[in-house]
C-alpha cells in the first residue's frame, strides 16, 4: 500500500477546459475517521489526501474546470486559484483519479 501518489506518467495529464470532470468510477473517495483525512481507495492501494486536494476532488461531479474553480473560490472566499487547481487536476488525471468527458 502506498502513501504517496505515483508520479504522473506520459502526457495523459493534459487537462482540457472544454471538458466535464468526473471522479473515476474505478476509485473511491472516502473520509477515514482513523486517519482524520480523505483517502482515495483503489485495488490494493490507498492515497492519503491533504484537505485542499480532497475539496477539489469532491467537486469533480461533472462540472467544467472553470465552474470547479469558481465553486472553490466561492467556498473559500479566495481568488486566483486556477493555476494551483489545474496543476493538481493534471496529477489527478495522470493517476486516473478523475476522467474528462466531452458531454
Amino acid at each position: 500500500m502506498s502513501d504517496t501518489p505515483p508520479p504522473p506518467t506520459g502526457n495523459h495529464g493534459q487537462l482540457r477546459s472544454d471538458c466535464r470532470l468526473r471522479f473515476s468510477p474505478l476509485h473511491r473517495l472516502q473520509w477515514e475517521d482513523a486517519q482524520q483525512k480523505y483517502v482515495i481507495l483503489y485495488p490494493e492501494g490507498m492515497v492519503e489526501l491533504n484537505p485542499s486536494a480532497a475539496e477539489i476532488l469532491k467537486l469533480c461531479d461533472g462540472r467544467s474546470l472553470d465552474a470547479l474553480v469558481a465553486a472553490l473560490e466561492a467556498q473559500f472566499n479566495a481568488s486566483e486559484l486556477k493555476n494551483d487547481v489545474t496543476e493538481f487536476l493534471e496529477v489527478a488525471l495522470a493517476n486516473g483519479w478523475i476522467r474528462q468527458h466531452d458531454d
Binding site: M1, Q30, D33, A34, Q35, V39, E44, G45, M46
Partner: peptide
C-alpha cells in the same frame, strides 16, 4: 474499528 480500510 482500529482503522483497517483495505480488505483482501
Amino acid at each position: 474499528a482500529m482503522g483497517a480500510v483495505q480488505l483482501g
